[in-house]
Design a protein around this nucleic acid. Structure first.
Lengths: 168, 168
DNA sequence: CACCCTATTGCAACGCATTGCATCAAGGAC
DNA sequence: GTCCTTGATGCAATGCGTTGCAATAGGGTG
């Protein structure tokens, strides 16, 4: 689809050197972390914490939720993964972020479209100018209504046209 | 503070006619709802569900969490309140939305600055153009780092410069 | 190779929010 | 005022995620 020189310049976080990267920071490489990393490597796109716990349990039944959640935090802190929040506010982890991106989540159908950092560029710059606020693009989730639901809603159900209620 | 002809044109949701507005839709006016509404009327800014439950209990100890959460959904559906998600993804309810706004939440200190709809206008229009995605501004939360934390971090602690990790 | 420091784990308890279900009551009809 | 329909409530159970704490083990050091 897109063809511009986008943000994907620096690619490939070294998935294979994770143990070293952890040790470099005084952190440790354990069986539980290897398990989670194996699961992550086999994962595409977005996953919730509980989904990861479940997947880990498939290959290592002794997996404990707290360990998984804590390890996710660690992996995020060293840049292996990132997360944003889904429709219900629950954390969704992004694996293999090919390009830094945000999300367009539809409040009607729950669909999730990616928003490339470049598209948000001017807006983010405006935030810096007006508020001196540096946004984390990969944590950006915009709620709204996707094209399909717009089309469907046209002439069908009024659906939730949030906050547009006055009519009295 | 601000002085432009912003979005505040249509103000004042009829707080006093809530019972009627509910009945108009076949919904009911109950003691519990009156309690919650009283709490909301005394509330400024943002609150979480649990905070509201607690406040309700202060004036009506018999208050049940499930009732409060369900009532919040109802009030949101008729446009009395709206919600977005805080730093931890938890719902935060907005009372008396003077102007439609989003949020700039600092991942370092948790501060929450308001983002006026007008500021996001061009960006939201771009989303419509490029994705045909209609965003709900009042549900928009941008995570990032606020001015204070930027200043503090300069020369202090590296803090979490998310995703900027490469260095090897 | 033994030792030590401390990061990590597992468990249990907790907090917030949601949901199913039987019961209750708002409020319109007569 | 009484009856009836159906929305609302309360309770108990469930799910996700977090946290405190004691025990374990990674892995660098001598």
């Amino acid at each position: 689809m897109s063809s511009g020189p986008l943000v994907r310049s620096r690619q490939a976080p070294p998935w294979d050197r994770v143990p070293e990267r952890l040790r470099q920071r005084g952190l440790r490489w354990t069986l539980q972390r290897a398990t989670l990393l194996a699961v992550l490597e086999a994962t595409e796109g977005h996953v919730t914490g509980s989904q990861l716990v479940e997947k880990c349990r498939e290959i290592e039944p002794a997996t404990t939720p707290s360990t998984v959640y804590r390890t996710l935090d660690v992996l995020e802190s060293i840049g292996i993964i990132s997360h944003s929040h889904g429709l219900d506010g629950r954390e969704e982890f992004h694996v293999r972020p090919v390009a830094v991106h945000g999300h367009l989540v539809c409040t009607d159908c729950g669909s999730d479209e990616e928003l490339l950092a470049a598209e948000a560029g001017p807006f983010l710059q405006a935030l810096v100018d007006a508020h001196r606020f540096e946004a984390h693009v990969d944590h950006l989730t915009v709620m709204g209504r996707c094209r399909d639901c717009i089309d469907t809603a046209t002439g069908t159900s009024p659906s939730q046209t949030r906050a547009a209620a006055e009519a009295d």
